[in-house]
Amino acid sequence: MILNFGSINLDLVYRVPHLPAPGETLASSSFMRYLGGKGINQSIAVARAGGTVHHIGCLGPDGGWLREQIAGFGLSLDGIATVDVPTGHAVIFVDEAAENQIVLFGGSNHAFTQDQIDRALAQASAEDWVLLQNETNLVPYVAQTAKARGLKVAYSAAPFDAVAVREVLDHIDLLALNEGEAAALASDLGRGASDLGLDHVLITKGADGAELHSADQVFHQGSFAVESIDTTGAGDTFLGAFMARFVDGDVAHALEFAAAASALQVTRQGAAAAIPDKAEVEAFLRVR
């Protein structure tokens, strides 16, 4: 099982002719609202890829619609607390080239308590993984407590903050970042992915695929050529799908499966709603 201590957002998505420049006012050609947030996107990706996931998160009193959406994806609501601050949300601009620009409001995602974390970790077994991102508070506490309990910890270093990464490096087993984040971290630490002393470092490279640094071996995975409509949530889909298969022990298959899942996801609009299920990914791979 994967215990994901992750963000839950209301995504407000605006389609624009191009990403706005400083001081520019743009007319949007469409508006949609979606369930989003790096954490819940990753949990949905794990579940849709056939993995077992328990999401731990926080919603404000205004989060009723999001609860309905989460339940609709087949995830349990047992680990999701209601807190007295507004639900986190994201304002997302998507341009004609499918590139995006995102502004986050943390809100309820910063309302985790140590008691909530301790209760969730007390349910874990030794073979379970904990998954973390930078959109919630108390990330170092979760990582340290999980490791002290003998659990494996995977950490997505996004939104990127070098200080936040340094705080958890000694308490994680898998670090996931994109190519730009990996370069920024290497510049900050003075050492690259292979020199971090971690069991696994996963680096996604967009159209250039991904690579996993594990011990003395580097696994490479190319990307699949598709026509992108919206790249929002593609990285979350990749990581969630990867973790669902990675816990089974087949690294090469996990990378290929994740690449296919994220390729399918960007051909659809939205984030969580666009994540393909296991059958769709397997069908896609059969014809590639």
Rank of each mutant, 00 (worst) to 15 (best):
Y141A: 07
V83A: 07
D95A: 03
Y155T: 04
S108C: 11
V94E: 09
L151K: 04
D84G: 05
K152G: 05
R166A: 12
L121A: 08
K147R: 15
N134T: 01
R149V: 09
N100D: 13
I117K: 11
D170K: 12
A120W: 06
V85Q: 15
V94A: 05
V165W: 00
Q101A: 13
A158E: 14
A162C: 11
D118C: 08
D84W: 00
V163C: 05
F112N: 06
Y155G: 04
A146G: 14
P140G: 09
V165A: 13
T136D: 03
Y155L: 05
I172D: 10
E135G: 00
V165F: 02
A146F: 03
V142R: 02
V163Q: 13
V142T: 08
I117P: 06
Y155P: 04
A154E: 08
D95W: 05
D128I: 00
F105H: 08
E135Y: 02
Q101L: 10
Q116W: 01
H171L: 06
A143C: 09
I102E: 11
H171G: 02
Q144P: 02
G106F: 01
T87R: 00
D161F: 00
V165S: 10
V142Y: 12
A122E: 15
E127L: 08
L169N: 06
W129T: 01
N100E: 09
I92Q: 04
Q144S: 12
R119D: 15
A143Q: 10
N134Y: 02
I117Y: 10
Q101V: 03
A164D: 14
G106N: 11
N134D: 06
